[in-house]
Design a protein around this nucleic acid. Structure first.
Length: 263
DNA sequence: ATGGTAGCGCTGCTA
């Protein structure tokens, strides 16, 4: 199984590139974030023509998550089953069973600024994600949680930690909230297969030539339960998909994270 | 130089 998570930064803007990428990379299950479209505008038929079933949870301009699968798509759930009052429901989580794996597509709130209400809501959202896992899955089953976590797990997951003083994505509370999700019984499989590297980064700011300067962050993660992680043979970031192609086809500011799983 | 770029959608917000 080839399992991919990718923040596409607008499905409408990215669909031609995404369709090309699907044709050349043959994913089995795609976890998409920031679709920025309504359920009505979701291009279900386009994916169907490529041989994929799909599910979407979105309401318009912001956020939006999807699961696209050619290995089946069952037991789809939009949003949290149990949601605390302090956790906003903003079309940031979607789950389904695909080919024997329970998959989640998640888009963790950005948090904006450390002293903001949005930062507090981000921590609450991650705590709610842990609760969702506790109430809907078993870590002894095959579970994959993929998405844009908006947290860099370690200092080496950003290009220069000294540039992040006082900023979100690298604070101890965010990392502890991510740790609590991992402590459900999940493993960061890209880190597992790249134990001694900086990054590999999955996001680069559009501004200032950040991609070409190597100024990125590793914030898009694929977390797998132990039985699933044991079947992972490769896990990597497709940096090619972040490059410009000339013409009107712009890249997302995120690159896809690709994970290969054997039966 | 308190900037920069992309997307949505039409004004400024979000990232």
């Amino acid at each position: 199984m080839r399992l991919v998570t990718w923040n596409v930064n607008s499905l409408k803007a990215r669909l031609p590139r995404l369709e090309d990428w699907i044709g050349s990379h043959a994913p089995d299950v795609l976890l998409l974030q920031e679709t920025k479209c309504t359920d009505e505008a979701f291009p279900r038929e386009e994916f169907s023509r490529l041989g994929y079933e799909s599910a979407h949870h979105g309401d318009g301009r912001w956020n939006g998550v999807a699961i696209v699968s050619r290995l089946g798509l069952e037991d789809v759930r939009s949003g949290f089953r149990e949601r605390a009052a302090e956790t906003p429901d903003e079309c940031r989580i979607l789950s389904a069973n695909c080919g024997g794996v329970k998959v989640f597509s998640v888009y963790v709130p950005n948090g904006r600024a450390v002293d903001s209400e949005f930062y507090a809501a981000k921590l609450a959202w991650l705590a709610n994600l842990r609760r969702e896992l506790d109430t809907t899955c078993d870590p002894s089953d095959a579970v994959a949680v993929g998405g844009d976590f908006n947290v860099a797990p370690e200092d080496r997951d950003v290009w220069d930690i000294t540039q992040f003083a006082g900023l979100t994505h690298v604070t101890r509370p965010e990392r502890e909230a991510l740790r609590a999700v991992l402590d459900f019984g999940l493993e960061d499989v890209v880190r597992r297969l790249h134990p001694d590297e900086v990054g590999p980064f999955s996001w680069w700011d559009y501004r200032g030539g950040a991609f070409h300067k190597g100024e990125g962050m590793r914030i898009d993660l694929l977390l797998a339960s132990a039985p699933l992680a044991a079947r992972v043979t490769a896990a990597y970031v497709d940096r090619e998909a972040r490059k410009g192609q000339g013409g009107e086809q712009q890249p997302s500011d995120h690159a896809p994270v690709v994970v290969e799983v054997v039966p």
